[in-house]
Design a protein around this nucleic acid. Sequence first.
RNA 1: GGAGGCUUAGCGAAGCGGCCAAACGCAGCUGACUGUAAAUCAGUUCCUUCGGGUUCGGUGGUUCGAAUCCACCAGCCUCCA
Length: 289
Amino acid sequence: MIYVIGGPTGSGKTSLAIALAKLWQAPIINADAFQMYQELNIGTNKELAILKPFKPYLYDQLSPTQSLSVAMYQKEFRSLIETLIPKHPKIIMVGGTGLYMKASLYDFEFAPQEVSIDLTKFDTFDNTKLHAHLASLDLEASQKIHVQNRRRVLRAIAIHQTTGKTKSDQEKAQKKALLYPATFIGILPQRDFLYQQLDQRVDAMFKQGLLDEVKTLVKKYGDKLLAFQAIGYKETIAYLKGKTTLDEAIQLIKQSTKRYAKRQITYFRHQLPMKWYGSGKEAFEDLTT
RNA sequence: GGAGGCUUAGCGAAGCGGCCAAACGCAGCUGACUGUAAAUCAGUUCCUUCGGGUUCGGUGGUUCGAAUCCACCAGCCUCCA
């Protein structure tokens, strides 16, 4: 059985995972996209010191120069889980990236290899024209994707170009079924409380030296990494470039963090069959009695 | 003490007699999500029993009709003393 622990950032998922892992002697698999990166420690709230001893999988193992993706995560997760299931009756999966969980646990199928295709010819298309082009290829997908969501429109076009099949057909071939026995546990503290915790956490990150961490990373790798899409990093980099004051950067990080938490709540609520608890403690008690 | 300017929804800011419950931006709230997901995108935000009801610093006035014009009051700003 895979115990999937989800919920917004700062809700106490990690502590619950550790408590359960100790009790059950269960392995932990990380499902937090940015915590897969090495060297992004403070800003991704990694809690290395307490989590590392449990040797979590898919965690702190990727060079910041690499670009991760759902497909890549899914692939690694699937091969990993095959080796873990025979040995462990209970497995814990924790993280905040709902899509990675869903894509791994359900029968999502991605094209085997992402052929690098040239999409630059669409640069001259405005959003409306691009969307119309998708409609001519895959009407169904075009109806689901908003005109302004250029990234998704482009992706749907890319799927057609690389596989010759439409995105809708690719998805229709899936049963949307769970591949492994899993139970979904969601932690959702009271909103005001959560937001307050998140604000405090941002202040704490700066006290722990986020600024130095970012400076070191930028010095080492430049400032263009995909990994720097992470909240806390992109704002700090903007500050280092003189685009904002430190104070503004901190405010922006707090704001983005709270927005992010809200998006996570929405995703887990509507995309996965969570059983919700107000805190990790409540979940722990319910699961262990 | 004198001269002028300003006051619009949570904030910033348009509007300058009817087409104004009031553009737009921000923030907030809600949602979408199948290879960038800590990303990308959308909807919505005075109250409402959806008939309507109360708004544009305050009070009074002009007008068929006022956020828009007039008077007085209050607060803020600039300049002169």
